[in-house]
């Protein structure tokens, strides 16, 4: 989508369409994540989403959370469940995340990590 703000007024009246509540898969895709295999994990999510024609789910490449020791890190945001961060995700685990967490809404009891800080803007849970 192309958008040019020609004035401050236009900018202020603009509502980013990014706030719609969709389920999200955030894959840590900085240099550290990629070095640990985040690219393969991302590709797995992408093909699984297509294969199962999952709707209303957004797959996003994000930067580094700072937890380089547990890369690749993947965060799952689903309405109603706490945001969950999984560390050391590989391709097989990615498929499990789709099956169990995204589809069945069951958090997987494996490699869960605490987010190490609180979100400055949303001020929701860590």
């Amino acid at each position: 989508m192309k958008k040019k703000f020609n004035s401050l007024k236009e900018f202020y009246s603009y509502q980013s369409n990014n706030t719609i509540m969709k389920s999200k898969i955030l894959v840590g895709y900085g240099s550290c994540g990629i070095a640990a295999g985040a690219d393969k994990v991302y590709d797995t999510f992408e093909s699984e989403i297509i294969k199962r024609s999952l709707k209303d789910i957004e797959l996003i490449k994000v930067g580094c959370l700072g937890l380089c020791f547990s890369e690749p890190n993947v965060e799952i945001i689903i309405n109603g469940l706490p945001d969950i961060l999984y560390g050391k995700v590989d391709e097989k685990f990615a498929v499990r995340i789709i099956d169990e967490h995204i589809i069945n809404k069951n958090i997987i009891n494996h490699n869960l990590y605490d987010k190490p800080y609180i979100d400055l803007f949303n001020n929701k849970e860590s």
Binding site: S16, N18, T19, I60, K61, G66, E75, D114, K124
Partner: peptide, 29 residues
């Protein structure tokens, strides 16, 4: 909101790991 029991405070890294760095919309949000 859950309390900050962590020692970290992310100002510079406020968006890192949360937004799509290749999307300006993501930053705008």
């Amino acid at each position: 909101p859950l309390p900050i029991y962590h020692k970290q405070l992310r100002l510079v890294l406020r968006n890192s790991g949360l937004i799509d760095p290749e999307s300006i919309e993501s930053y705008l949000s």
